[in-house]
Structures are given as C-alpha cells and as structure tokens.
C-alpha cells in the first residue's frame, strides 16, 4: 500500500462564479522511504500541492491519504519546511527548535530535551549560534535552522517546499549535500518541491513534473536510477544523468509549448478610428 497518496485531487480558489482551478485530478503515489521531487514552473500550483499534502488546506475533490487514512488537518508527522523559513523572529535558534520539540514530545524531560535539541543544532552545523535570533543569521543558516526544526519533530514524511530556491548557488550546493546526507543517515519519506531539474536529478529517486497551471496535474514520472552516493562533480559527465536531465527538460519545455498552444488567445476587434486633424478645421 502506498505510504502517501494523492487521489484525484482538485483544488481551486475564488468565488464559484469565476473559480480559478489550480490543480485538477492530481494523482501521486509515494512509497515509504522514497525521495520524490515535484518539479514545475512558477505559478503551476506547487505551493498549493504542499499545503494539501501537509493538510493545511483541504482539496475540493479527491483525497489526500497517508498510510491509508485521509488527511484532514496538519500535524507533526508530516513535517513541512516552508519556502520562506517561517522561523519565529522573536525566538533564538535554540528556542525555535524547542517550541517544536516541546509540543511534539511533551513527555521529554528537560536535560534530555536539551541534549536532543543540541543534537539537531549540531546536525545542521549551527553550533555556537544557539542564542542568536533569526535576524542575526544568514539566509543559509536560517534555512538550516528551518530544516533542523522540521527534522526535530521526527516527521514520518518530510515535505520540502522549494527549500533552496532563495539561496545562492554555493550555499545551495552545500545544503543539497546536507539534506542528502541526513536523508541517507536516517531514511525517511521525502517530497521535495523544486524548480531546478539538476537539483531534482541529483537528490531524488523519482522526478514528477507538474504541468503548468491553470488546472495543473501530475504527468508521467521519471525514475532516477543513478547510483548513490551521487557526486555532483562527476555527475555532469555521467551519460545517464545527461539523458535524464535532457528528457525532463524537453518534457517540461514541451509542456510549456503545449500550454501556450492550449491557451485561448482572445483578440479584441479594434474600432477603425483615425485622429482628426484639428489644424485644418476653421
């Protein structure tokens, strides 16, 4: 049985009279411990998909199921790492993790909890920044803190909403390696939303492109058969990687073309008017 499943899910916004349908009949099945990358153009409904998976929003039609049970509300077993960090700016690094840990593991004793939190701070290499506020951290450090907070909840599914899109290329590479390292150490189901084909190919077991919105849906999936651990320096010369990247890119570009051709171009008939030459009158 599938671990996490989207079954004929549709979601739209706005009043019924002119409803904007973001997702239509989306089907996705994710196995346990699988790393799935959902890739799509901006505005194709990726964030809506995340909200549905997390349970922050309910689908208009269809169902989101986890281990066979319908998801009706958000919860810590589906740890979500938000696109814009969502750190609480008045709490320090330590406190930001603590608030999550306290809530998810209320029975944990204080010294034990301190050790547990420290372990996650060390894991994302934020050691010695425990008492800094998010405002005093760099973008990459904030993202790592956000990751640590999500991981500390010990979620069964990790939902990463464009986790690295706001970072510069170098920090991005470092964090990609870090996420893979953590995932390999402690196998878990991961759904990552991204707009970067290379990133998806480097990290995921399977790449699922989201057709451009409106009414986006999930098309065929591309399995990534590259051996792990994948080395980013040699990967560029790997023929399988090149083939996969080409296939996904071409598919995405075609989708874009298709979307363009599908779009109904409304042309307005313009009235045939000419400006009057006032200098010749009178």
């Amino acid at each position: 049985m599938a671990f996490l499943e989207l079954h004929n899910v549709s979601k739209g916004y706005g009043p019924p009279s002119h409803r904007y349908e973001v997702l239509r009949d989306v089907n996705l099945t994710i196995e346990e411990n699988e790393f799935v990358a959902v890739i799509g153009f901006s505005g194709s409904g990726k964030s809506t998909l995340v909200s549905l998976l997390a349970g922050l929003e309910q689908p208009d039609a269809g169902e989101v199921r986890m281990k066979g049970k319908v998801v009706t509300e958000p919860g810590p077993q589906r740890g979500i790492m938000f696109q814009n960090y969502s750190l609480l700016p008045w709490l320090s690094v330590y406190q930001n993790i603590e608030i999550a840990v306290k809530q998810v593991f209320p029975e944990m004793k204080k010294p034990q909890r301190r050790e547990y939190i420290q372990q996650y701070i060390d894991m994302v290499t934020l050691t010695n920044s425990e008492w800094k506020l998010p405002a005093e951290l760099s973008g990459g450090m904030r993202q790592r803190l956000s990751l640590a907070r999500t991981l500390a909840m010990k979620p069964e599914v990790l939902i990463l909403d464009e986790p690295l899109s706001a970072l510069d290329a170098l920090t991005r590479a470092v964090l990609q390696d870090e996420i893979i390292r953590i995932w390999e150490e402690d196998k878990r189901t991961v759904v990552m939303i991204t707009n970067d084909v290379d990133e998806a190919a480097l990290m995921a077991d399977r790449i699922v492109p989201l057709t451009p919105g409106p009414s986006a849906t999930l098309e065929r999936a591309f399995p990534v058969t590259l051996d792990r651990p994948r080395d980013r320096t040699t990967l560029n010369f790997n023929p399988d990687f090149k083939k996969l990247r080409n296939a996904v890119s071409t598919f995405m570009m075609d989708l874009n073309e298709e979307a363009k051709s599908l779009r109904v171009e409304t042309t307005y008939k313009l009235p045939d008017l000419e400006p009057a030459d006032l200098s010749k009158i009178g």
Partner: peptide
C-alpha cells in the same frame, strides 16, 4: 507563515495565543 507553524505543531488555543500571536 507563523500561524501555519502553529497549525503544523498543533498548538492549542492558549499556546498559540501566548507563543505565536502575542509575541
């Protein structure tokens, strides 16, 4: 986003008020 954090953590009304909304 902060309210979403509260939702994901399933904070109760009072925790949400004192830990998220008021600060």
């Amino acid at each position: 986003d902060h309210l979403n954090v509260a939702k994901v953590l399933r904070l109760g009304f009072w925790s949400r008020l004192f830990k998220i909304v008021l600060p």
